[in-house]
Amino acid sequence: MNIFRLVGDLSHLLAIIILLLKIWKTRSCAGISGKSQILFAVVYTTRYLDLLTTYVSAYNTVMKFVFIVASYATVYLMYVKFRATYDHNHDTFRIEFLLVPCFILSLLINHEFTVLEVMWTFSIYLESVAILPQLFLVSKTGEAESITSHYLFALGSYRALYLLNWVYRYMAEDHYELIAIVSGVVQTVLYCDFFYLYITKVLKGKKLQLPA
């Protein structure tokens, strides 16, 4: 464990908590893409299949449980409890266009052709594009509540910090994992224009408005 990965995990946890609190407190999931939340639930499910078979550390096991439970709780809140506030008119990204290519790619490019390894690789590829429906929704509505932009900033920062973690691990352990690194770069690049808007607008107290 290193500081980059620890802060990255905490940023990831913060993002998930911000989102759950926003939906629970405002009793509304306006401005949030349910499709992205479904993709995140798929990402954690396919990545943490080894949760019950491989013990890494208490921290690792607890965090995996928290991520899985929180992602399903968010999907439940959006599609069941507060479904009347779900913005299905704008949340129209075709996630099958993300699921199928990622699955095919995980069959073609992986470290080992086993179920666990292909599922892990699929979750890595899927996570890199899972935020697209959310960014698509923000671009369609042209704005985002400040709490939603804080959520996106924390979520985007987590994988950016993981990139630093992988640089550190390369220097400290002299090995690297290209599938995770390339996917992590793609994932972080997708947030770049949002990061720019967040830093230039939201941090100055303005609302996140996308140029129409």
Partner: peptide
């Protein structure tokens, strides 16, 4: 082993 492919990560 776990560290090989970052399997010790979340």
């Amino acid at each position: 082993d776990l560290e090989k492919y970052y399997k010790d990560e979340l």
